[in-house]
Amino acid sequence: MSVFDHIEFDSHEHVAFYHDKEAGLSAIIAIHNTNLGPALGGCRMWPYVSSAEALTDVLRLSKGMTYKAAMANIALGGGKSVIIGDPRKQKTPAMMEAMGKFVDSLSGKYFTAEDSGISVTDLQTMATQSDYIAGVNAQYHYADEQPDGNPAPSTAYGVFVGLKASVEHGLNSSLEGVSVAIQGMGHVGYRLASHLHAAGAKLYVADIFPEGVEKAVAELGATAVAPEEILGLDVDVLAPCALGAAINDQTLPMIKAKVIAGAANNQLAREEIGDMLVERGILYAPDYVINAGGIIDIFHQRMEKSTNAALRKHIEDIGTTLKEIYTRADAQKAATNRVANIIAEERFSLKG
């Protein structure tokens, strides 16, 4: 099947495949749209069951980055890269060097950054082969801490700000005593849990890997939940922070939460799920709006001049943007994801 015929192909500008047998690298880079600027999107390493699954993921994720950049009001386009393999077992420095060469081959049309399965150390290795690696020379931190290039803290803080705004709008409540089920306790999920704990929320957490869950139970007083049960908990808020498509035709009927606000990309398996959420009275925070803290962070690190305070303010604008989407969606009786899409498309589409 041609890439052009793929169900997730959406006028992508560039899709590149790369294989380095000696380094053990099989990777794909997808650039969706560069109308607002060069494409930026993290590099994800995951044990995909097939190259077809990897292609589906990179096409969806790169498109989401275009919408994310537009809604975050930054002059960047959308792209993404994926490496096929288990980061816990197959990742090597030679593989990361090869990935750097792959990114460099696009001559600056695409900048990569950290994502699932890739660390700042990995990016530093890639950077030995390319100047188009973001997150390796960080200068700013939203909380006035020492920056290390990892955008996860900013992503988590943005999700926290967005979740708080969503609870205020959807439940007319503060976070004190609100119950939140977090699916995925990785770099972002755990940091989100920490923010929520400090705000007085009651936490339920799940992950396919036990480390983050055990830490949240010990340090944050969270309740551990089996991964297969987390989506159906009787809680106020569901925060998907793992892989995409968690909200689908099979899982939707079991969801009891009245607010869905999490860090995962592409949370809805298809756009129509958003309409179904409206019918069920569930408020959905469009994922590429609420999880934009990371790309905002990287944008500020690439600016000639910024400040910690400017970065923090830009991230906190996520809450304001979400409330604008909710107000417009309420007035139009429309799904929040469709309203967000319209606004983003108005911003990144070329005029005349």
Results as ranks from 00 to 15, higher is better:
Phe9Asn: 04
Phe9Gly: 06
Ala16Pro: 06
Phe17Arg: 05
Lys21Trp: 13
Ile29Gly: 07
Ile31Phe: 04
His32Glu: 05
Leu36Gly: 04
Leu40His: 13
Trp46Gln: 14
Pro47Glu: 03
Ser50Met: 12
Ser51Gly: 13
Ala52Glu: 15
Glu53Trp: 00
Leu61Lys: 10
Lys63Ala: 10
Gly64Phe: 01
Met65Leu: 08
Ala98Glu: 06
Val103Trp: 14
Gly108Ala: 02
Thr112Arg: 14
Ser116Asp: 01
Gln124Pro: 10
Met126Lys: 00
Ile133Gly: 13
His141Asp: 14
Gly149Asp: 07
Asn150Thr: 05
Ala152Gly: 01
Thr155Gln: 09
Tyr157Val: 05
Val161His: 00
Gly170Ile: 07
Ser174Gly: 14
Leu175Val: 03
Ile182Tyr: 02
Met185Gly: 07
Gly186Tyr: 05
Leu192His: 06
Leu192Trp: 03
His197Lys: 11
Leu203Tyr: 02
Ala206Glu: 04
Pro210Met: 04
Glu211Cys: 06
Gly212Gln: 12
Gly212Leu: 04
Ala222Gln: 01
Thr223Ala: 02
Val225Met: 01
Glu229Tyr: 00
Ile230Ser: 14
Leu238Asp: 00
Ala246Val: 08
Ile247Trp: 07
Gln250Ile: 12
Gln250Cys: 10
Leu252Asp: 00
Pro253Ile: 11
Met254Ala: 14
Lys256Leu: 09
Ala257Gly: 02
Val259Gly: 01
Ala261Asn: 09
Leu268Val: 05
Ile273Met: 08
Gly274Thr: 11
Leu283Gln: 09
Asp287Tyr: 03
Glu304Thr: 12
Ser306Val: 04
Leu311Gly: 14
Lys313Glu: 15
Leu322Arg: 10
Leu322Ser: 10
Thr327Val: 00
Gln332Val: 11
Ala334Leu: 12
Ala340Leu: 08
Ile342Gln: 15
Ile342Arg: 13
Ile343Asp: 10
Ile343Thr: 07
Ser349Arg: 13
Lys351Arg: 12
